[in-house]
Amino acid sequence: MTDSTRLPEPLASWVETVLGPLKAVQDASHPRENSQVWRVTGRTGDHYVKVAPKPVLYTRETRAYREAVPHLGHGNAPALKDNSADLLALILTAVDGEPLKGEESLARRRAAHRQAGQLLRRFHEALPGHQAQDEAAHVVESAQSGLDKHIAEASDHLSTAEADTLRRLVSTLPGLGPLPAGWRHGDFWERNLLWNGRRCALIDFERSEPGPLVSDFVKLATSLWPDHPELRTTLFEGYGRSLSDAEECALVAFAAADAASALAYGPRHGDALVTARGRATVKRLMQEGRR
């Protein structure tokens, strides 16, 4: 978490060089230890200052802002005002809206998800698929190679049968052939959809990179769609196409990999929401496997 009243040095000096004197600084971090985000107000209006937790996340986010985010259109995502590799910091314009919440009426929530689908399609198509295939293959390899490590770390939260089921599902990925690829967001779910009641905007691109497009639907498939299948239908209406049979199989496999990762990460970091998502996914995959 950050100090909500001021920016630390030398970050403050750099930001004021770009934006001029600041009138107000407000903490906008996520409730986790390595999140450093501030909303700042100066003579040029409101901006966000974000310090990436790791160099790789800084590199991914700055690349996404330069190459993919402009395809979303004005006002549909923040714009990169400036960045500092030395500080791992970005200055971003502010966009209107708050993270989408379940309290919204169904009609408004569906409108937001339809727009989100449209934005995600533009983002995915910011990089032609043939240029993303090598990196997409690497994502598939990483899902496989990291699985046993995650299962070992989550051993207190997985039975032998559950671990075997996750391994079996993830092992199907190579046999599905090359999956449609492009620029994926990497953390696509309601937390990163800003909604002002009329318009949806997409934020938080630190996990963006080329890869298999279907992997972008895992967070929604494991946290939201089981209870709200109508939102899946609406999002794909906006997206403009359905998943292929191979992508549907890959979505299950990526969900299995995500569940192992969640059960390795959540308990270790005291994150009850991530842990619950992992457990719910494992339970659902086991039930579906018995049908």
Rank of each mutant, 00 (worst) to 15 (best):
P78I: 00
A68P: 02
A85T: 14
R63P: 11
V56E: 13
S84N: 13
K54F: 09
G97Q: 09
R66K: 15
A77K: 10
Y65H: 15
N76L: 04
V56Y: 07
K54V: 09
G97A: 11
K81M: 12
E67L: 13
A64P: 05
A68V: 02
R60N: 15
K81V: 14
V51P: 06
P53L: 04
L90D: 07
T93Q: 09
E61Y: 05
G73H: 09
P55V: 01
L80S: 09
E61P: 06
A77H: 10
R66G: 15
R63W: 15
R66M: 10
A79K: 15
A85N: 11
G75I: 00
V51E: 00
P70E: 09
D86C: 08
Y65A: 10
K81P: 01
A79G: 13
P78T: 03
L80V: 08
A85P: 13
P53F: 02
S84L: 09
E67T: 08
A89R: 10
A94N: 11
P70T: 07
V95E: 10
V49Q: 09
P53D: 00
D86R: 14
V95G: 06
L90R: 07
P53N: 01
A79R: 15
R63K: 15
K81I: 14
P55H: 00
R60I: 01
G75N: 04
V49A: 02
T93P: 10
T62W: 06
L90V: 00
L57V: 00
K54A: 14
L90Y: 02
L57E: 09
K54W: 11
K81T: 14
P55E: 03
V51H: 02
T62R: 13
A94D: 13
L88G: 03
D82A: 15
T93N: 10
A94Y: 03
L72D: 01
V49D: 00
L92I: 03
E61C: 08
H71V: 07
K50W: 03
A94S: 15
T93W: 02
E67F: 04
P55G: 04
P78E: 07
E67G: 07
K81D: 12
Y65C: 14
D86T: 12
A52R: 04
R60Q: 13
L90F: 05
V56S: 11
A52H: 02
N76P: 00
L92Q: 12
H74W: 03
Y65M: 15
D96I: 02
L80G: 11
E67S: 14
D82H: 10
K54R: 15
A64R: 08
V69N: 07
V69A: 03
H71D: 09
S84P: 07
L80H: 12
R66H: 14
T62A: 09
